[in-house]
Design a protein around this nucleic acid. Structure first.
Length: 467
RNA sequence: GCUCCCUUCGUCUAGUGGCCCAGGACACCGCCCUCUCAAGGCGGGAACACGAGUUCGAGUCUCGUAGGGAGCGCCA
């Protein structure tokens, strides 16, 4: 039997970091073992599910490159199937109707708590064998075994044993006729032939009752792997407070999908001392059984470092479209300036994100809009700066070829001729070209702005100096 | 309250009884390089939650304590 995993988000919001890692692990496990990865949308909560959320999840997965082999399937389209299975369970005497109102159940829970038990349903209708009747409170409940225990070998957490006495008779079909989560998942996972259920460890508690359902339905029980949570930097549950939680927000913040994937795969899993993994390596090395058991915190600094690694090592031409996207986002016209791939090479040692890169690239795509007056005072109004700029301007105008190498040579010559250090040439030039005292190497700064623009900006700077 | 899960540097982790007076990475600090800012190179500080037990020997096995988390829904 081939291995099949599934990612089963509920469309009540965007794809968040925790969900993305679950999806990644499901996808990797399937790829690693030559199996299939299925996407199923758990939208039985009609109040909170939205089409926009479905789209957001699909977009997030597409951006990350986690394409499902099958799906998306939607639970709302399988209602008949759940009802059929529920009926079968009822006919087999493994389920029964119960008619308590919500208030009565509340009272039951309170009473159990008062006794020091966990709040649970009493099973009052379990053995009454009453004839079925119409009632707004009618739900179908599962006859959970009352004795013995459920044992399963979790691929991440190890052996987990649960006493059936701890479990109450869960609702299968709600009073509105819709299936509950625990019932729908089991039916779906059976129908979709899922062999390995990988999900967040907030589901461990559901697993024993689901296993009992598998047994009642005479189905093979899949393997389970429960992933520890991802916490915010402060150790608290990840939330909007912590900045970006949505995967698409990471695109907007300038991260490469590969970097995010790499960060996520290392959060809870490792392979010796390795930090950087190509997608192919992840697929080759990942094993769900090697995943850690404890929760981990999200560390933006490390993601930033990883992102820069990819910025530095990927082919600039591959990254260029992403940079163009960011340039346009901040209102810059990529056509009105240098080749984005060359910009990437000039800036990738200096920034961690494409968003920062786009902002720093402004100097080449737009005129100087604001002068750093401190820089002007220090470098432009300095002794001899005017002569240096004039000389540079002449050299630049006369150069047969416009390239970083030739510019570098020209500046070196100029420094030698005037018998001054590189700094005395580079800094005034930098301020003239960019309006600030921080930019990439001077030859790239000058080169990327283009010859015409360089000559013009030097001219403007000299005009500024004299007034 | 009850049940279940978790616990190695600030963070992510290596470690499957001797190779560990605990290794790597990020972050931090220092030095070098240097036209600014970076990147890079070199170096530094920094952890086995606590207590018993098993063993010749424990980060590694067992039990307990403390701390953290999850679940206990006609939510998923």
């Amino acid at each position: 039997m081939t291995l099949r995993t599934r990612f089963a988000p509920s469309p009540t919001g965007y794809l968040h970091i925790g969900g993305a890692r679950t999806a990644l692990y499901c996808w990797l496990e399937a790829r690693h073992r030559g199996g299939q990865f299925i996407l199923r949308v758990e939208d039985t909560d009609r109040e909170r599910s939205t089409d926009a959320a479905v789209r957001a999840i699909l977009d997030g997965m597409a951006w990350l490159g986690l394409q499902p082999d099958e799906g998306p399937f939607f639970q709302t389209q399988r209602m008949d199937r759940y009802r059929t299975v529920a009926q079968a369970l009822l006919d087999a005497g493994k389920a029964y109707y119960a008619y308590e109102s919500k208030a009565e159940i509340e009272a039951m829970r309170a009473a159990a708590m008062a006794r020091g038990d966990k709040p649970r349903y009493s099973g009052a209708y379990r053995d009454r064998n009453e004839p079925c009747r119409e009632d707004p409170n009618r739900v179908l409940r599962f006859k959970n075994p009352q004795t013995g225990s459920v044992v399963f070998e979790d691929k991440v957490k190890g052996r987990i044993e649960w006493n059936n006495a701890e479990l109450d008779d869960l609702v299968l079909i709600r009073s509105d006729g819709f299936p509950t989560y625990n019932f729908a998942v089991v039916v779906d996972d059976i129908d979709m032939a899922i062999t390995e259920v990988i999900r967040g460890d907030d589901h461990v508690n559901n697993t024993p009752r689901q296993i009992n359902l598998y047994h009642a339905l005479h189905a093979d029980v899949p393997a389970f792997a429960h992933l520890p949570m991802i916490l915010g930097p402060d150790g608290q549950k990840l939330s909007k407070r912590h900045g970006a939680v949505s995967v698409t927000q990471y695109r907007e913040d300038g991260y490469l999908p590969h970097a995010l994937l790499n960060y996520l795969v290392r959060l809870g899993w490792s392979h010796g001392d390795e930090e950087i993994f190509s997608i192919a390596q992840m697929v080759e090395l990942f094993d769900i059984g090697d995943v850690n058991q404890s929760a981990s915190r999200f560390d933006l600094a490390k993601l930033g470092w990883l992102n820069q690694q990819y910025l530095k090592n990927d082919d600039p031409n591959d990254i260029a479209p992403e940079l163009v996207w960011h340039l346009q986002r901040i209102g810059l016209d990529p056509a009105g300036g240098p080749d984005p791939a060359e910009v990437i090479v000039a800036l990738r040692d200096r920034v961690q994100t494409l968003k920062e890169m786009a902002m720093r690239a402004r100097i080449w795509y737009a005129p100087i809009d604001q002068w750093d007056e401190q820089a002007v005072a220090k470098h432009l109004r300095a002794e001899g700066a005017a002569d240096v700029l004039r000389a540079a301007q002449m050299k630049f105008a006369a150069m047969p070829q416009w390239s970083p190498q030739s510019i570098h040579l020209a500046i070196e010559q100029l420094a030698a001729e005037c018998n001054i250090g590189m700094g005395k040439v580079a800094q005034p030039l930098r301020v003239a070209i960019t309006g600030t005292q921080v930019s990439p190497s001077i030859e790239h700064t000058v080169y990327l702005v283009g010859r015409d623009q360089a000559l013009r900006r030097i001219e403007d700077a000299m005009a500024k100096m004299s007034c």
